[in-house]
């Protein structure tokens, strides 16, 4: 299967008519299966004013397997793990639900929507989800504090983060957090 043809086409589509508030860069010209994305938080979301780095990794089986997408910028959100290289819980991206005809634009739009409307009933961070449901004021305060701390200024994708979006990296980060 020629996944490169499909990725190239999607990349061209994105570059010619870029989706709203999204910029795409390739960290390495020779590798089109790794994208760096800068997502400007929607103004109607609590994260407005923040810029978030996302790393998109297309597997060799793409589009039959879903791409792996992580947050390179830390974010306080019920559906995104609270760490560098935060994993995202999005039903669209789960292997069972993934459809090969789904375009990356659709996925990015869904992530953008997730910032506007978190899904506390399907959480990755249960504590944050609880807070979102019961103490919305506290949640918003903390989320805004995170934006101020991590999501201002130029977006950092990390030196190794791009090359390895694997579990090992995540674990290391988790240890630092705890």
């Amino acid at each position: 299967m020629s996944s490169s043809k499909r990725i190239t086409k999607e990349l061209n589509d994105c570059l010619t008519s870029p989706p709203p508030s999204i910029t795409i860069t390739l960290p390495s010209e020779s590798n089109i299966s790794l994208w760096h994305i800068t997502l400007t938080a929607p103004p109607e979301s609590i994260y407005s004013g923040g810029k978030f780095g996302l790393i998109v990794q297309f597997p060799p089986e793409y589009p039959f397997k879903p791409p792996t997408i992580t947050f390179a910028t830390r974010i306080y959100h019920p559906n995104i793990t609270n760490e560098t290289n935060g994993s995202i819980c999005l039903s669209l991206l789960k292997t069972d639900n993934w459809k090969p005809s789904t375009k990356i634009v659709t996925v990015l739009e869904a992530i953008r929507q997730l910032l506007v409307e978190p899904q506390p009933d399907d959480p990755l961070e249960t504590r944050i989800a609880e807070q979102y449901k019961n103490e919305r004021k506290e949640f918003e305060k903390e989320a805004r504090a995170y934006v101020g701390r991590y999501a201002k200024g130029p977006v950092q994708f990390g030196t190794e983060a791009g090359a390895a979006t694997t579990g090992g990296e995540g674990q290391q980060q988790q240890q630092q957090v705890s």
Partner: peptide, 17 residues
């Protein structure tokens, strides 16, 4: 992929989103 890897049979949907 659905049949061999995911062991799916009764609920394989059309590949369209």
């Amino acid at each position: 992929q659905k049949i061999r890897e995911e062991g799916e049979a009764a609920r394989i949907q059309c590949p369209a989103e």
